[in-house]
Amino acid sequence: MSLDHSDVKKIAHLARMALDESQVDAYAEDLSKILGLVEQLEAAETHAIEPMSHPLHMAQRLRVDEVTEKDCRDENQAIAPSVVNGLYLVPKVIE
């Protein structure tokens, strides 16, 4: 699978990541090479193989549904780029 200029721009948009226009072709080349490596998987016979999502085949542990965290809002917001009255500020979303 080879990716071209417009494929890369589409993927970058899906990842919400701006790319310098001048670098898009270089990314297309690199990503195509990586996908070339990944395509070696096609040759593997996996018809009857179960997908493996956890290295120890363990189920997700559940805990009792109760509040265990203390309120750290002020500490956490102290490192935010822009906060007013406990709210994170972003550019206006609704006109």
């Binding site: 990944v38 998987l41 096609e42 593997a44 996996t46 193989i49 179960e50 997908p51 493996m52 999502s53």
Partner: peptide, 9 residues
């Protein structure tokens, strides 16, 4: 999905 299977192998 394919990679999760080869991971199993």
């Amino acid at each position: 999905l394919k990679a999760q299977k080869t991971r199993h192998l």
